[in-house]
Design a binder for these strands. Structure first.
Lengths: 239, 239
DNA sequence: TTGTTATTATCTCATTATGGGACAATAATA
DNA sequence: TATTATTGTCCCATAATGAGATAATAACAA
């Protein structure tokens, strides 16, 4: 496990006791998804995360972590909350993880210290992501928000809080332009909003609202082969 | 400077390279004010701030710092953003501050390290605050938002960001109940909103809006001695 | 060719919210 | 009793939103 040794040796590169956790949202098959990592030899999943280098801004750290897990650069990223309550009970989890990988590391009190974690949420085009695990994990997979697996630390709470923030900022930020592919139908856009808000919206009023914002460009019709009127394709206007 | 030595000796009590800065808002004489500290022997002011103890939650740390500077407990507090860009240039300021107080401390690389700071804003009843400086400062005073003095670090930016957040959340949070005294007139409430939003509002529409929210209780009339109709006093409903 | 069917795109109307002016009520004073 | 400066409401035009109704149309079946 040389990687881990390297990691422990490099601890001076990072700000101690501070981590960054990223809730990466994607949208696929009318469902909101989150990218998670399966921890090696444990029946536990975790958010993509990492540490902040001494010479690195926190937003840069988040971008770096995101690029490592998705292969994408310049991702839409939003800081939403710091998780630093005294009872985050990260110790028990780190203990579990470290015991499995490298029992000797337990002698180094550094790994067992309490962490304060900065929560970011990211919006990505599902189809462009290349999920890549890190050295503590064996897989990297998308999970539907409704069916999250068993999560380490307080990561379930972090995901929940990220979604709440996303909901609140839904109509002030252009969420769609980051979660949807280049072109999409009005129904797909509506379905995205309904999924995030967890409530049905009316087709007619939703379309009126979206068109009135003057942020969409109507391209051509999409002929799906279905026996009904073909919907228009839209894209977000450039600026 | 024994206090400082104690402080340096106690560094293991705190999470390193992490600080908390509090933007404490008050409202007085129709003006929005911020509580600031005057750094000893320097022509510089700074936000009340501090470090997070190893066994302390970050919100608890903020409450502790707030209590030390204002004498108030259970203050309305909201985390709004983390400041951790690589170029926060805190070093030059810390250097300035430490040179003045304790040149020997400069040998300890700890004090010169880069910091990541969690920004909180607090809303307090101006009249109840007892401003109290900390060991690095000589005064603790209220400043009008429009006339801030020369500020250390990136504290001006932090204050600006806090105000922006306050504006955005103005109608979802009950800002008034924290910034105003127990009872107040409709005009005072409106004046608070106008000051925060930096825009004039219409008396009739503002009153209609506020009353329709069903959060205010009308008490009795306030006879000021002025030659005009006496305004009602209001208080925020309990629950 | 001509219906049929399932959607999509719009239109319309009622209801509610908001902007902005007008007016009546009233506490102290002249 | 009249005056004055505010305060509390009312009214109406306009904008935004909720909810049903109707027209357009792409593929398929008859």
């Amino acid at each position: 496990m040389n990687e881990l040794e390297d990691f422990l040796a490099l601890k001076d590169r990072f700000i101690p006791q501070l981590s960054v956790d990223c809730v990466i949202f994607g949208f696929h098959n009318q469902q909101l998804k989150v990218l998670l990592l399966k921890l090696k030899n444990l029946d536990l999943w975790a958010l993509p995360g990492g540490y902040v280098e001494q010479s690195e801004g926190i937003d840069d750290a988040a971008q770096r972590i995101l690029e490592e897990r998705t292969g994408l650069r310049d991702i839409y990223l939003e800081q939403f909350r710091v998780f630093g309550s005294a009872d985050r009970s990260t110790k028990e989890f780190i203990q579990k993880i470290m015991e499995v990988h490298h029992p000797e590391s337990m002698n180094d009190p550094w790994v067992l210290q309490r962490y304060v974690s900065i929560g970011y949420y990211a919006l990505v085009d599902f189809s462009k992501v290349n999920p890549t695990p890190d050295f503590l994990s064996e897989y990297c997979e998308w999970f539907e928000m409704k069916q999250l697996p068993k999560l380490a630390f307080d990561h379930r709470e972090i995901i929940q809080k990220a979604l709440e923030t996303l909901r609140i900022t839904l109509d002030s930020k252009l969420v769609g332009s980051n979660l949807l592919p280049e072109t999409f139908t009005m129904m797909e856009l509506q379905s995205l909003y309904e999924t995030i808000l967890e409530m049905p919206l009316r087709r007619n009023n939703f379309q009126r609202k979206m068109l009135s914002l003057d942020i969409l460009e109507r391209i051509e019709k999409l002929y799906t082969g279905a026996a009904n009127k073909a919907p228009y394709l839209y894209r977000f206007k450039k600026s």
